[in-house]
Amino acid sequence: MSDRPQITDEELHAYIDGELSRVRAADITALAQYDRELARKIAAFRADKARLVELYGPVGERPVPAAWLHTIERAQRRSTIWPSRQTIYAIAASLALMVVSMATYKIIKPSDEDPTVAQALAARHESLVMTDAAGTVSTMEAANHVVQDILGPTIKTPDLSKLGYTLAAAHAMPERKAVTIDYRDGQNHVFTVYLSHSPGTERFDMLKRGATRICVWQDEELSAVMVGEMSAGEMLRLATLAYAGLTAA
């Protein structure tokens, strides 16, 4: 079982299409340098995209079906302004591309559309890869400083030793105003707590992506996404201890 969760396919497609923020795109570029599997996936998605363009790219240059032209021309007869023939072709080509795009999107649409979860999984991936990077701390006291610098003085680094997990590393992610805290148990299983400011909505969700269990627990101020390869029962116990520990007296 791998300890490293994948960056979601949705995020990778956005990365390839240039739709990610500059910061996030830079993160993925950097990660791909460390992670051969991620680099291979990016290359595979780029190849898929190239094949799609190859298959459907000439659609815009093909003759517009006569029935479409007839419909458009009939509509234009009622109009006082007559667009040029090129404009009609462009509209028809756009329609054709729209149909192709919708069909393609349906094929490649990723299943995970949850930005909170995607962000937490990406952050976990990043934190596991960059264990020795600058800004990484591994004592409870230092982790508390990291957490409180980013999230405020009342939030604490949870102590999970009661369930056999000890702090492995905490990373500040100031550009996202988030913190990732990794814990490991005696068998080197990793449990990650990704903390950020809440979007303002309450939420509790337990999700599963392959062997990875994800628990999203947030109130109107704090969002905690907890990730690990474990059963639902184990996640319930760990998530409860972690969530309670964030605000423990």
Partner: peptide, 29 residues
């Protein structure tokens, strides 16, 4: 929920459905 460390009342998270019971260490929802 009232959090003593913060001395204030916070709304939620929703204490319902499969949210773990904070008083039972996650042994029950």
């Amino acid at each position: 929920r009232y959090v003593p460390g913060e001395r204030r009342v916070r709304r939620g998270p929703s204490l319902s459905y499969d949210t773990p019971d904070p008083e039972a260490s996650g042994f029950e929802t």
